[in-house]
């Protein structure tokens, strides 16, 4: 907590961690539920990126939302927090790169972020960069309040 101690007191930092944890987990849970409800639509959203070979787009559409869901859920509950946050950070980097590549190729597609009708644009990329920053903060300063982390893998 030394670095953060320069700008805020430890109890403030732990409040910030808790806040970030709730924001990040809720974003991931909510966005996952929509994709879980309609896998076929999400598969098309994945296909539209034209990055993954068609044969694997369904595979991604089946599993990716559940990875998001469980990471969000475990982060919310405070179980396996570091592992979940690392996955969330990795996914955010993946989403940011995919969307940048879409914009560079001039495709005009749904981002598949929160159901239909949300286009890939700079704003979406900025949003994911914010999520990535929250995740990186939480990797460095995990929230220790209100966790069930006595459920350990140690």
């Amino acid at each position: 907590m030394k670095m953060i101690g320069i700008i805020m007191r430890p109890e403030q930092a732990s409040f910030v961690s808790l806040l970030f944890r709730f924001i990040l987990s809720l974003v991931f849970i909510i966005s996952a539920l929509d994709k879980i409800a309609s896998p076929a639509e999400f598969a098309i959203a994945v296909e539209n990126y034209r990055i993954i070979p068609s044969v694997f787009t369904n595979t991604i559409a089946i599993f990716l939302p559940w990875i998001e869901f469980f990471c969000g859920l475990f982060l919310l509950l405070g179980i396996w927090q570091r592992g979940s946050t690392v996955i969330i950070a990795a996914l955010s980097i993946l989403f940011i790169s995919a969307m940048i590549s879409v914009l560079l190729r001039g495709l005009d597609i749904d981002c598949g972020c929160f159901g239909a009708g949300v286009k890939v644009d700079n704003y979406r990329i900025a949003e994911d960069i914010v999520l990535l920053l929250l995740a990186l903060f939480l990797i460095k300063f995990p929230s220790e309040k209100f966790t069930l982390d006595r459920f350990p893998v140690r």
């Binding site: 309609s38 076929a40 369904n58 595979t59 089946i62």
Partner: peptide, 8 residues
């Protein structure tokens, strides 16, 4: 509402 794991 499942889909095939591998899309043909």
């Amino acid at each position: 509402n499942g889909i095939p794991i591998f899309y043909h």
